[in-house]
């Protein structure tokens, strides 16, 4: 399976990655190689093999429902580019 420049551009956009046009062919080649590997694995007969959701063969730990975190807003907001009235400010998002 091979990806073209348009697909590379779409994937990059979805991941919000800025890539240079001249790098696109290399990305296309490398991503296609990964898909080829997947295609190769897809050819294996996996009937009767349960899909693996995680390489660790164990189950999720859980916690009891308790509030254990306290307010550290000032510390978190000290590294934010801009804050006001306790809010993080970001470039305008319009719906």
């Amino acid at each position: 399976m091979s990806l073209g420049p348009a697909e590379v551009a779409k994937i990059a956009h979805l991941a919000r990655l800025a890539i240079r046009d001249e790098d696109a062919p290399a990305y296309a080649r490398n991503l296609s190689a990964i898909l080829d590997l997947v295609a190769q694995m897809n050819a294996v007969d996996t009937a009767g093999v349960a899909p693996m959701a995680h390489p660790l063969d164990t189950a999720q730990r859980s916690r009891t429902d308790e509030v254990t975190e306290f307010n550290q807003r000032e510390r978190f907001q000290a590294i934010a580019p801009r804050v006001e009235a306790g809010l993080y400010l970001v470039p305008k998002v319009i719906e």
Binding site: Q60, R61, S62, R63, T64, D65, E69, N71, Q72, R73, F76, Q77, A85, G86, L87, Y88
Partner: peptide, 25 residues
Amino acid sequence: EPNTQACAIDLGMPGVLPVLNREAA
């Protein structure tokens, strides 16, 4: 008050790990 109940995990800080609240399940 805004952002007083948002901890490192909720903010997606690097290196944090989510742990499931059993009560939600």
